[in-house]
């Protein structure tokens, strides 16, 4: 018998589903009912003509749990395909954040300077506030938000991860 690996790993699960009512509830209900983590979730139609949507879920668990997640999601009737991108190989995972910073004087200037370094765009500007738009890996967004904290960070809205395999392969 193979020994069970107890290390917790992070995984990006991409799921191609029939775009029908209740399909998202089926997927997240399965995660809730079986006690799987959802660290982030994105969902949007990707193939309008074929009524398909793609759900990307960042989750974590032992390798055995990740395998179970794939198998359990694969059981759902409206699921076409499910893949663990972290396992498939190199992939691109990106999310977007809108970050509101309310400040003036030196902190305001510093916020703008850091935003430039991160290649964040100011999509809304008033005399006392900025809304920055920033796209990138989760860790990049995390560190940007950390840096904004002492500079008047007021509100954050993040999309969660959208991910895709590098190279010509598809899920």
């Amino acid at each position: 018998m193979t020994m069970q690996d107890e290390t917790i790993v992070s995984a990006v699960i991409s799921i191609l589903v029939e775009n029908e009512s209740g399909v998202l509830a089926r997927v997240i209900g399965l995660f809730a009912g079986r006690g799987y983590n959802i660290e982030s979730l994105t969902v949007a139609p990707v193939e309008q003509s074929r009524h398909q949507s793609r759900i990307n879920i960042v989750t974590s668990g032992t390798p055995q749990v990740i395998e179970q997640i794939k198998a359990q999601v694969g059981r759902l009737v409206p699921v076409y395909r499910v893949a663990d991108l972290t396992q498939v190989g190199p992939h691109v995972a990106r999310e977007m954040a809108l970050v509101k910073v309310v400040s003036s004087g030196e902190p305001r200037t510093e916020a703008l300077r850091i935003a430039e370094a991160f290649r964040a765009r100011a999509v809304d500007t008033t005399a006392t506030s900025f809304v920055f738009e920033l796209t990138g890996a989760t860790e990049k967004l995390d560190s940007f938000i950390d840096l904004m904290r002492p500079l008047g960070l007021a509100e954050v809205s993040r999309t969660g991860v959208a991910a895709i395999i590098r190279g010509p392969r598809t899920i």
Partner: peptide, 13 residues
């Protein structure tokens, strides 16, 4: 017949 039942509880060879 159900892939999710395999390696769910007991790891098999």
């Amino acid at each position: 017949i159900e892939p999710s039942q395999i390696n769910k509880i007991v790891q098999v060879d």
